[in-house]
Amino acid sequence: MDALKSAGRALIRSPSLAKQSWGGGGRHRKLPENWTDTRETLLEGMLFSLKYLGMTLVEQPKGEELSAAAIKRIVATAKASGKKLQKVTLKVSPRGIILTDNLTNQLIENVSIYRISYCTADKMHDKVFAYIAQSQHNQSLECHAFLCTKRKMAQAVTLTVAQAFKVAFEFWQVSKEEKEKRDKASQEGGDVLGARQDCTPPLKSLVATGNLLDLEETAKAPLSTVSANTTNMDEVPRPQALSGSSVVWELDDGLDEAFSRLAQSRTNPQVLDTGLTAQDMHYAQCLSPVDWDKPDSSGTEQDDLFSF
């Protein structure tokens, strides 16, 4: 819950932080000083300027060897085509990944977070970031790969997607708890209302004896509580940590079903599988986004697919 609360507080303090972009060759504004600060901008989305290598189908939802083989196929196909790589912007948030063309600003792909089953910074092609997700059109699994400016960037994108998945799962947990509370309150309110109706004398007997209905007592009954809980029953509950912020979080049926399955089948359902080692994760978390744009010590960066 700490990640969720800190993310909400950060967004309320400075929503404009989320509009910064990394990996864009110096076009961005001043960047936060450390990885923790940038992680807090996830709610509205972190932007990464990358190059799209392509996509291939895979048979399993996750796995280092599986993704490595898929990336190898994608890279080989991209090299064989001889075409310049498409420059894209990857927007990562707890909602998922939005992929747009840098030149036309046209939407290429919009992947809900619950469809993503794996992401990684490839070991062999260490400047490549990739994720595996279920197609929104059918049940097939797709591996999408992107060329980053350097290994640090690939690791940073991988960690960002993993963190977005974690925050999304926490949102789901909060929403589920809130819905259970509202359902319980609604049920209790309905029981109270039913009890009051059972003990209320029939209207005919009131008229016969000349008694008047006590409207004041009726007004004191917990009807307002019942209506408050039943009027918006169809509205999706939102985490309290975000009250007053500009973010509107809505959970669709697909996300609810997917996270429910994860909660039942996995020990740590909030953790998205990645190909990063503990050492890689520690190294990337210690980086400032400013470091992502620094040239690798191995030599001059080449803006070309064939540089790796």
Rank of each mutant, 00 (worst) to 15 (best):
Q86F: 10
T56R: 03
Q240C: 04
G26K: 10
G82D: 02
F306K: 00
Y283C: 14
V75H: 00
Y283W: 10
C199Y: 15
S297Q: 10
A133F: 01
A18P: 10
D37E: 15
A121H: 02
E33M: 12
S135W: 00
F146R: 00
E235I: 04
K72H: 05
Q106K: 11
K184W: 09
K220F: 06
K220V: 06
A68D: 01
R266A: 11
A121Q: 02
E142G: 15
A219T: 04
F259C: 02
N105K: 02
K166P: 03
E142A: 14
L213S: 04
K220S: 06
G54N: 01
I74C: 12
E109I: 08
R95Q: 01
E33H: 14
V271Y: 12
Q106A: 06
A185D: 13
I74A: 04
N34T: 13
Q106F: 13
D183F: 13
Q302I: 10
Q173P: 05
I98P: 00
E235D: 07
F165V: 03
Q173W: 12
A241N: 06
P295L: 14
A221S: 09
A121Y: 01
K181F: 13
E180N: 13
K166I: 03
P295R: 08
D252H: 06
N268E: 07
F129L: 01
R95Y: 04
T36Q: 12
K123Q: 08
V207S: 09
K30W: 15
S81L: 07
G45A: 08
D183E: 15
V167G: 04
Q106I: 06
F129I: 07
R29E: 07
T100S: 10
T277H: 10
Y131D: 01
L43S: 14
V174C: 04
S297W: 08
R266H: 06
R182D: 14
M124S: 08
S14T: 10
T77L: 08
E170S: 06
A219P: 10
F306H: 01
T160D: 02
L107I: 05
L255G: 04
Q302D: 02
H28P: 15
Y118H: 05
S67M: 13
T41V: 12
N268W: 03
S81H: 11
V207P: 11
Q285F: 10
L206D: 04
S297I: 06
F259G: 03
M124Y: 05
L159S: 15
D291R: 08
A228Q: 02
R13S: 08
L99F: 12
L276T: 02
S246G: 13
L17R: 10
V111I: 08
A221V: 07
F48A: 01
E65N: 11
L262A: 02
E65F: 12
A219K: 04
R115Q: 13
K179V: 07
D198N: 06
L57K: 06
S307W: 04
F169V: 05
E180F: 09
F146Q: 00
L85M: 12
L255S: 02
V161E: 00
L193N: 04
P94V: 04
L47H: 01
A70K: 01
P32E: 12
P61R: 08
L159T: 06
N138I: 08
S93Q: 14
A80C: 02
K166N: 06
E235H: 02
L31D: 14
P295W: 08
G82A: 13
L287K: 10
M233S: 07
E178Y: 08
D214I: 06
T38I: 15
A241V: 10
N268A: 07
I12N: 08
A69P: 03
S112Y: 11
V174W: 00
G82R: 01
P239D: 08
D122G: 01
Y283G: 09
E44N: 11
L255I: 10
I113K: 06
G82Y: 04
S49F: 14
K220Y: 13
G299H: 05
D122F: 00
P61I: 14
L141D: 03
A221G: 08
E235R: 08
S49D: 05
V271H: 10
S307K: 14
D37Q: 12
L212M: 09
S224W: 04
R27W: 10
K294C: 10
L276W: 05
K79S: 01
V236W: 09
L50D: 01
D198H: 12
M153A: 09
L251I: 13
E170L: 05
E65D: 11
S135V: 05
A145P: 00
